[in-house]
């Protein structure tokens, strides 16, 4: 039986995939017409090609989408602290903020203030020779700033530990 070359084998496969055209296609047709071995090989490959093409898509179980959405909810939830820890943290932040506000309104920080002379700082004095200015310090303003930061922190904790998990759980329940 005559031997089929690698080039002919590739041409047969390209032909089956519909990728052979122009002179290459004409050449193969010409060779096919005169070669029973090539015709036989084409038939073998065609049978295989048809059988493989018939393979259908497989379907997963009916609860596949619901399971993915449920797992997604769990993954999202585990990315944040538990609601219990979150609420404790939130309470801590709120208590600290509340205490600071009470202390501010009681005037505890009113006496803290004055000027910080940079020249008196020994490490600075050692390296910098020219005279440095003094910085004004307002204790009340610093504490008010801390209160503001605490409130922002409290909002972030509330969002991450209570609000987002709550809404995500609600959305996830639609798929379970």
């Amino acid at each position: 039986m005559e031997k089929i070359t690698t080039f002919q084998e590739d041409s047969l496969q390209d032909f089956l995939d519909g990728k052979l055209e122009g002179p290459a296609l004409q050449q193969l047709k010409h060779e096919l017409a005169s070669s029973p071995a090539l015709q036989h090989r084409l038939e073998e490959l065609r049978r295989l090609h048809q059988s493989l093409s018939k393979q259908s898509l497989q379907s997963p179980s009916s609860g596949f989408v619901a399971q993915v959405m449920k797992n997604l909810g769990q993954v999202s939830r585990s990315a944040y602290p538990s609601p219990r820890n979150g609420i404790m943290l939130l309470l801590g932040v709120m208590v600290a903020t509340g205490m600071l506000v009470i202390m501010i309104s009681a005037g505890v920080f009113d006496q803290i203030g004055g000027l910080i002379s940079l020249e008196q700082l020994s490490p600075v004095k050692k390296y910098i020779q020219p005279s440095l200015p003094s910085l004004p310090i307002n204790g009340k303003l610093i504490i008010q700033l801390l209160v503001g930061i605490n409130l922002i922190l409290a909002f972030i904790v509330l969002d991450r530990t209570v609000l987002r998990p709550f809404f995500q759980r609600r959305a996830g329940n639609q798929w379970t």
Binding site: Q58, P60, F64, V68, L72, S76, Q168, A171, W175
Partner: peptide, 22 residues
């Protein structure tokens, strides 16, 4: 942030994804 919209994508590609994994 609309997580539930992902369900449609999952539903659309589940058979392909499952077949590849299989």
């Amino acid at each position: 942030g609309k997580q539930e919209a992902y369900a449609r994508l999952v539903d659309n590609y589940k058979s392909y994804a499952y077949t590849i994994a299989l």
